[in-house]
Design a protein around this nucleic acid. Structure first.
Lengths: 309, 309
DNA sequence: GTTTCTCAAGAAACTTTTTTTCATCGGCGA
DNA sequence: TCGCCGATGAAAAAAAGTTTCTTGAGAAAC
């Protein structure tokens, strides 16, 4: 399993790490290549912690265990040495001196990397379980606040298009007042970048008490929500200075949601319908945008045609 | 031993390998990335040999043992993918036979590429004009239908955070009834993948008649909207066989919106720093994160809290 | 034709590494 | 001060990897 920006990801998770885990993290950030050469006990000794803590550290970052983490690190280091540049200058977020070109380049890169590493790190077993759970549920509830609320609504739109009853809520109160809509066997999808928002935690707890299966889409490997959720899918977006990681993570969330819906569409239709119909159903947005209007033979002149930087 | 071309090296050593070792070698050459995911016994089984032979194979190649070899392979594969992978295999379409892994990979790739090429092609001159227009406007109106509506709402949220009055509409009727909110010098942002939706065109025309500056974010270079708009920013999501570009384009739209907002934030750095911090603080107070300031008596278990209203 | 030798290859014993479990300790609220 | 919670490391358990041992096929010698 190779990640696109492991060091950045470690830096990003720093806050959610315990003291001794953070010590390890610092060590890894400072001497990535020395660490690649160490086995778990050596790293434990080097960091003056214990092997158990190293394992916990690896898991907190979303790896299966230490060897898993180590291999990802090897990949990263190896790539770093070969490419030089590309990844490294992503490090320092956006500064006041950046030109517009740089802003665009940096944000686009951060978004693209967030998507790629989310996809690489996505646990396919959990992914399959989520799709299955959706398939079995009579109704799917979705909750997301603020930006994540739009992801929730987007998911509702997509599920509805696939013929699956789904309701998106954008605040805890609405969700809780409609709680009787979901019952045992149904699914609640919680979308939350941090996974620590109290409203989200409340809603998850209430629905879980009803026997509803809880699916969580979050960026944090260690938050209160992950312990409540039955199935958790992680996004991998890192924070930058001027722009909270939430923005990139929302984009990653959308990608995850897209993948889930396409997979679900594929499952439901593969026997009976043609591939074209799958795509039409799975696609986010036909959105009333019929291309009929283009009959007007206006000699359209495109202003910024082909403009490159 | 870190080789620059491990696969080539294996090929070289082929002659000096015994029969069953050669079988392993062939396997590694053919599926390097699958092998990186295997531990010694899995590789032994996959190659229909024994673990002992795998160890001998590793040593024959000059490694200390299997883990050593495996890590070298991880490095090699990772390097390979980073240099060649990204753009080369953008076939894109999803088929009925695709595994979940392939679905995820393809969608993520399509999204990442959409973002990157949008960023590369974005016309910076227009970009600057849009940011300036926003800066001067007293109010910014935003219209987007269906999926694009979420982008519109997201933009509203971001502008509001930056202290700029903004209203997002998700249908033509709401927009037109609130038309008096915008006047000469203000800005209407229209978000539309196809750029041909009649409702959008109507709204643009009405606002333009009032002297409002029209900004269009679209994927289509040939649509009626582009002729109406004063400033057009193009996203570059390519259509693929089985998945319309709309989904990827929405993600690209978000990236564009992000870039614009960050650029705008940067223009008035000092003011926004505090504005952002204020909004962030407002959100943060509802977070159960173990920030030191949190005095909540019970951070997690909110089972019977309030409950049914 | 039989015997013996050699050596690749797998099985099994053994070692190392990693993971899990469990007890401890220190901080924090009551 | 007491009791609870949770981070931490020690130690037991499990997994992965390595070495040794045995087998058996083929070649060479008798």
């Amino acid at each position: 399993m190779a990640t696109s920006d492991l060091i950045g990801e470690i830096r990003n998770s720093f806050d959610s790490l315990h003291a001794s885990e953070a010590a390890i993290a610092q060590l890894v950030i400072d001497n990535p290549d020395r660490v690649t050469a160490m086995n778990i006990s050596q790293l434990a000794e080097f960091s003056e912690t214990s092997v158990a803590t190293v394992v916990r550290f690896s898991k907190a970052l979303g790896f299966k265990g230490y060897p898993d983490f180590r291999m990802a690190l090897v990949g990263e280091v190896s790539r770093r040495n070969s490419t030089t540049g590309a990844i490294s200058n992503l490090d320092g977020g956006i500064t006041i001196d950046d030109s517009d070109e740089e802003i665009i380049r940096k944000i686009a890169l951060a978004d693209a990397i967030a998507i790629q590493s989310t996809a690489e790190r996505l646990d396919v077993a959990t992914f399959k379980k989520v799709v299955n759970a959706w398939g079995k549920a009579r109704t799917v509830g979705i909750i997301g606040l603020a930006s994540s609320g739009y992801v929730a609504m987007d998911l509702q739109l997509k599920l509805n298009r696939l013929g699956k009853p789904a309701i998106a809520w954008r605040d805890a109160h609405s969700a809780l007042t409609s709680i009787s809509l979901l019952n045992k066997g149904d699914v609640l999808v919680a979308v939350s970048h941090s996974g620590t928002t109290l409203d989200i935690v409340d809603v998850m707890n209430e629905f879980k008490a009803r026997g509803v299966t809880i699916v969580l889409i979050t960026n944090s490997h260690r938050s209160t929500s992950t312990t409540i959720a039955d199935l958790t899918l992680y996004t991998s977006a890192r924070e930058t200075t001027f722009r909270s990681g939430a923005t990139a993570s929302r984009i990653a969330q959308l990608t995850v949601v897209d993948c889930l819906c396409v997979a679900m569409a594929q499952r439901n239709w593969s026997e009976t319908k043609s591939a074209l119909e799958i795509s039409r159903a799975a696609v986010g947005s036909r959105s009333g945008k019929k291309v009929v209007t283009n009959k007007h033979p206006k000699p359209v002149k495109t202003r910024n045609q082909g403009g490159n930087k």
